[in-house]
């Protein structure tokens, strides 16, 4: 993962503009990162675990191998909306047609851990979310998970002190929850003001990572704010 300061074009813009040599690997990378919301969508839509896995895998194969991106009728602007629209299209047409061969064991281009995916899905709350709602929500949370992981990794890179600090400060990041600056300060042996400053910086770092993460899924970094707003809708 490149640092935010270095990206020249977003991953999705690389893919969407197609034809470039890097677009395939960029697409693979994106798919490998964002497959779970699709899986959850299919499962919520009524597919069993096997079928959802096959569909997801088949879809990605078609997407990557057959240059589906260039052909598909789609909304190019956002990877998130494109992916769902393309999957629906795929599921209703191609998949029905090719089901027999694919199930027999078509070539797979991505190795996805469907087992863990299914485990994860089993823990999804049984609420009234529609498949689409599930997809959007899972997507939003996935973006945040990935951001959180990168933030943690970034702190860990700074040594065990930083890592410990991260663990302590992390609950303060969102401002939700019960942690207070005072308590955290006592734990870390820092003044309350120093904690505030540290959290402030951590938020800024988080923002950079999050924006870079989201920028990768839209074709123009200017849409980042808008995409964030949509993701917020999804978790509200």
């Amino acid at each position: 993962m490149s640092t935010p300061a270095q990206f020249q074009a977003t991953r999705w813009s690389l893919v969407a503009s197609a034809g470039s040599g890097t677009s395939r690997s960029a697409l693979e990378e994106l798919c490998a990162s964002y497959w779970y919301p699709l899986y959850a969508f299919l499962r919520r839509g009524g597919s069993d675990a096997q079928e959802a896995a096959d569909l997801t895998q088949g879809f990605f194969t078609a997407l990557i191998e057959k240059d589906y991106v260039a052909d598909a009728d789609r909304e190019r602007g956002r990877f998130r909306t494109f992916l769902l629209a393309a999957l629906k299209n795929f599921a209703s047409k191609e998949w029905a047609k090719n089901r027999a061969q694919k199930r027999g064991g078509g070539a797979t281009v991505l190795s996805l851990d469907f087992e863990s995916g299914e485990e994860r899905y089993a823990r999804e709350p049984a609420d009234s979310l529609t498949p689409e709602g599930m997809y959007e929500r899972r997507w939003a949370l996935l973006v945040l998970d990935r951001t959180g992981e990168k933030l943690a990794a970034w702190f860990r890179k700074g040594g065990s002190d930083k890592a410990e600090r991260y663990e302590a400060l992390r609950p303060l990041l969102s401002g939700e929850g019960n942690a207070t600056y005072r308590d955290v300060g006592l734990r870390l042996g820092m003044s309350e003001t120093a904690v505030k400053v540290a959290v402030h910086r951590m938020r800024q770092r988080y923002r950079e990572i999050l924006r870079a993460e989201i920028a990768d899924t839209v074709d123009d970094p200017r849409y980042v704010d808008d995409e964030i707003a949509r993701l917020m809708e999804a978790v509200r």
Partner: peptide, 25 residues
């Protein structure tokens, strides 16, 4: 269905997610 179905349960996870997303704005 509307994804924001009134029956949808309130999830603390979501509130935090919304707040974290807001940090990104």
């Amino acid at each position: 269905n509307d994804p924001q179905d009134p029956q949808k349960q309130a999830r603390p996870e979501d509130a935090e997610a919304a707040r974290l997303l807001e940090v990104g704005l």
